[in-house]
Simulated assay, not measured.
Amino acid sequence: MRFVEGGLSDLSVSRTSFDWGVPVPDSPGHVMYVWVDALTNYLTGAGYPNDAETMARFWPADLHLIGKDITRFHTVYWPAFLMSANLPLPKQVSFGQDGSYSAEAIVTRVNAELANSFGNLAQRTLSFIAKNLDGALPEAGRSDPADAMLIEEMVIACAGLRTAFDDLMLSQGIEAWMRGVFACNQYIDAQAPWALRKTDPDRMHAVLGTLVRAIRMLAIAILPVVPQSAGKVLDQLGADERDHAAIDDDGWYGRQQAAGFTIAPPSPVFPRLELPAAAA
């Protein structure tokens, strides 16, 4: 606000004091001002100027999330650039906070939360079904209150992710989702379907069916974060409906079962990462 209150003046879109950058057509010695070049990437990423169909789908952006300390460029310069080109402005601009990144942190979280927790949960559940039930979806079996309790925890975890994401609290949303993953791992360890296979097959079916439902719900919820890997989990389940509303589709399992869907022996979806040599 202080910058605007101080009065606005014309801004040159080119520079001549250095030669690195995008050359200005028909203007020798001029390169594009870096913020013109950088901010325009939002448009070209949305299909501008050659892909009108994609542009119409993604622009104007419903939300433009920016980081700290670059507010002037995104809230003064960027709207001015768009208005000068007769292009619509983003519908909403919100400001983020500082983040931290390190290769070690990424490797640690991927291995702990995806490979070891969610990936291992899906792999051992679906592998067990493929091996011991010839891939057929488990029957209803003998239910237990723990089954409905787990599904309710999935509903809460997925809703927590959605609510947090709507409020742009991405880390908190993923933490809510991870609580669902941890609940599933606690459930499978407590129920031990590998032991039930010999002692109580009816109960084993109920446990495995509950886990299939839970894994599908978790995979749909995390799809916007890891679309390729979560999509592979859903492929293994034959789950075609993948919007957030599909999480609450209680009839999905019965339809898959009635259609005779079978689970093929799965391949691991979340391989463990190794720390890059330069960061080790």
Rank of each mutant, 00 (worst) to 15 (best):
V76M: 13
Y77L: 13
A80I: 12
F81N: 06
L82R: 09
S84E: 11
N86E: 12
L87R: 09
P88N: 09
L89T: 08
P90S: 09
G96Y: 03
Q97E: 12
Q97W: 00
Q97F: 01
G99V: 11
S102E: 03
A103T: 09
E104R: 12
I106R: 00
N116M: 02
N116W: 05
S117W: 01
N120F: 03
N120W: 02
N120D: 14
A122C: 10
Q123K: 15
Q123T: 14
R124S: 12
L126T: 14
F128K: 01
I129V: 09
I129N: 04
A130Y: 02
K131G: 00
K131P: 00
K131I: 04
D134K: 12
G135S: 06
G135A: 04
P138K: 09
R142H: 14
R142F: 12
S143H: 08
S143F: 07
P145M: 05
A146W: 01
A148Q: 10
L150Q: 05
I151Q: 11
E153G: 05
E153T: 10
G160Q: 07
L161T: 01
R162C: 02
A164I: 03
F165H: 08
D166W: 02
D167F: 02
L168T: 04
M169W: 03
M169S: 08
G173E: 00
E175K: 06
W177N: 02
R179G: 06
G180H: 02
G180A: 10
F182K: 13
C184Y: 08
N185A: 06
Y187N: 07
I188P: 09
D189V: 10
A190H: 08
A190K: 13
A190W: 06
W194P: 04
L196E: 14
R197G: 09
R197C: 04
D200H: 07
D200I: 01
P201K: 03
D202N: 06
D202A: 11
R203P: 04
M204T: 07
V207W: 13
G209C: 15
G209W: 09
T210H: 10
T210W: 06
V212H: 03
